[in-house]
Design a protein around this nucleic acid. Structure first.
Lengths: 249, 249
DNA sequence: TGCCTTTTTTGATCTGCGTCAAGGCTTGGC
DNA sequence: GCCAAGCCTTGACGCAGATCAAAAAAGGCA
């Protein structure tokens, strides 16, 4: 889910695969070893479904590379995205063997998986894995609640600005640039339709508001997906966030 | 937060205060004893603020009686409620000492509190407390995500029906009646304005839609707050949920 | 009981966003 | 190079829900 705090790679941790830090930031080497023994990789192509809501879910894992979405659909086809899964984000939940949401790969995705039951055993033997998962889940909860404000109370323009500003910051963190308040460049990982599903809008409205933000100089576009934000502070203002970006302290 | 699974009182547990089950459903007696030693009570009157976003938060705890709301405000006054705290719900988070949301008592509220740092120590010594908190947090996350669908994709009428159906079911669980699908009676714990803040609507729209549901025989009102649902299945259909109520399996 | 405040309902009007429709741009296959 | 299939943009129009306004209920408390 979109949240800066849930994600951190220590710059000196090139040898420590992202999957391990995602599962447990404080793992000692023997615990990493235990994780190592039960892990396996799965690859998915862009557009492929990783899991359907209601399916039996016999693994948990984390995204190693690529982007996936977590979404919920109503019977009549209305869809709401409830989470965006970026590298290091955790998928699945210990103690629940039925998937609650559809997970779809937006780009090619590599996941590092653990079979659920050995993972749960390990979690029970290794207290701070549960503690680490608790931290991550609390971060997800904060992100979900922040998004409730976006969905419930913001205008279409503010919604777009909120999404862009979160992606920009998340992208900056992924690439280990400081978020800063100056100019930021990134690629939009989502189609207009996916953005609409995330924001509770239609794709036409998304398109119109992006055009409007471009016309007003808040963002610059090169092609459809390559975005330049000349002034992050301006974008965050458009999003209706306070100066610190609405992120929790 | 509105979620059935996060809440359970064993019928034979009259001597086991709700606060302990809320913190740890599987506590052994000596662990309960440890919790007992660091707990204290706080009372709040209806309308009183329990904590403001940004405040230092030096306790965690659970609601023993009464109802409180968790909400987020924008600078211009727009407000989005992100959670409804009913008895047994947990407030605060280990590892974070700044409150992220406003917590306000809607009715008179009694909370069972634990100072944060002793609680965290206990959590580190007692692995399954962290595991229990993880379960509860995952339930909250599911509830938040379910609410994202309501906020992003449902019509005003469906939103009202969703809220009523969740409150009805939650109320049935609290009073240890089976949720059933027949007739249900309960008191609305929220003002129209609070409902509006929860649903991302205005209070006028809330009022109008409640009137419409009454006119259509989906609900019956006695006074402003006493609600009878003659047919829960009908209400859930109005909410746009599938027959099982949209709750996760 | 009667006054005052708060909450709720209802009406009239406005507007942001959805819906429907058409056309442009990009990419890949042949 | 041409065609087809996805994406994306833009326009015209309608409607659900917001906004503005006012009155009716429901409490509280002397």
């Amino acid at each position: 889910m979109l949240n800066e705090r849930s994600f951190s790679i220590a710059p000196d941790c090139a040898d420590c695969p992202i999957r391990h830090r995602a599962v447990c930031a404080r793992c000692e080497s023997d615990e990493l070893e235990s994780l190592e023994q039960i892990k396996y990789y799965r690859k998915f192509e862009a557009g492929q479904s990783i899991i359907w809501a209601g399916d039996r879910m016999d693994f948990v894992g984390s995204v190693v590379s690529g982007i996936a979405t977590l979404s919920q659909a109503m019977e009549d086809g209305r869809t709401q995205m409830v989470g965006l899964l970026l590298p290091s984000d955790f998928v699945g939940r210990p103690g629940r063997n039925i998937a609650a949401y559809d997970v779809v790969a937006t780009t090619d995705v590599v996941m590092c998986c653990f079979r659920r039951s050995p993972f749960e055993d390990l979690m029970h033997r290794t207290p701070h894995i549960a503690q680490r998962l608790l931290e991550m889940t609390l971060d997800e909860l904060d992100a979900a609640r922040e998004w409730m404000l976006v969905l419930g109370r913001k205008t279409a323009r503010e919604k777009i600005a909120s999404l862009l500003s979160i992606i920009a910051r998340r992208d900056a963190t992924l690439n280990m640039r400081g978020p800063g308040t100056g100019s930021v460049v990134f690629n939009l990982p989502l189609t207009r339709e996916a953005m609409a599903d995330y924001l509770g809008l239609t794709l036409e409205t998304v398109s119109r508001q992006i055009s409007a933000l471009r016309k007003d100089g808040v963002i610059e576009l090169e092609g459809k997906r390559h975005v330049t934000v000349p002034d992050m502070a301006r974008l965050m203002e458009e999003a209706g966030d306070d100066a610190d970006g609405g992120m929790l302290v």
